[in-house]
Structures are given as C-alpha cells and as structure tokens.
Amino acid sequence: MAEGTLVPAWEGLWDEDDEGAYLVGGRCGACGGLALGLRPICPHCHREGTLVAEAVGRRGCLYSATVIHQAPPGFEAPYRVGYVDIGEGLRVFAHVQAGQDAPGAGNAVALHIAAVKTAPDGQAQSGPFYAAAEGDAK
C-alpha cells in the first residue's frame, strides 16, 4: 500500500515536521512535567487541561528489544519491538530496526514513522519505528 495512505495505529502520539519524525509529548504548563501524549489530566500534578504539545523522542537510546515470532492479528512476524529511552527522559515502546545492522541495548537510535500494522479492513497503519543512528546514545 502506498505511503500516502498510512493512518496512525493510535491517534495523536506521533507526527512529522521539517526536522523529521517526532513523538507528541504533553508538557504541563503548571508543573513542567512531561507525559507521552496530550492527556486530559497531568500525571505529575493532577491538574486538568494544562498539557501543551511538545515534539519529543526524535532520538534516544535503546533499552531492550526482542524479535516477535508469534504475532497478534494485524501484524506480520517476525518484527522487532523494544523500549527506547528518549532524550527528554521517558521510556517509550516502539518498533525497532531488525537485521544485520540492528541496534542493540545501549545504542543510539533515531525515530521514523513506518507502516507496522494492517487494520481488519486492509488499511495500512503507521507506528513509531526506531533505527540505528550515528553519534552518542545520550
């Protein structure tokens, strides 16, 4: 399916701008805390309606990854997933590059948006995908 027809597997958590792919962080205007996504209630100070969108997670450090061989519906095995410690201090779940040049735990990774899933109606869906990156993991 063409790249242009991708829709997000989860609304409002990732996007792209001139600098490339990013995750949508929610920065609290009251306490300064950061969460993944624009949630109604700040998980740090519990105020409602205080989170403002902020681009985060363009780069990170791979914490752990595994190759999934038995896939749930909508996914094609094998694929690699893991947790990435993003520069802003969150640990996020994402798809991760597999194969010969695949990053290992502790390696620097950079975010891309990739097709990861197919909906029951055949619609290709996108998700966050971290691939090996040059430079320091931190």
Binding site: W10, F75, V81, Y83, F93, H95, K117, P128
Partner: peptide
C-alpha cells in the same frame, strides 16, 4: 495496539 504481546513483555 502497537503489537506487543504477553510473551514479548517478558522477553524484553
């Protein structure tokens, strides 16, 4: 939703 599974959680 992004394809994690129970065994994969333990695998990680």
């Amino acid at each position: 939703t992004l394809g994690n599974t129970a065994p994969a959680q333990y695998a990680l």
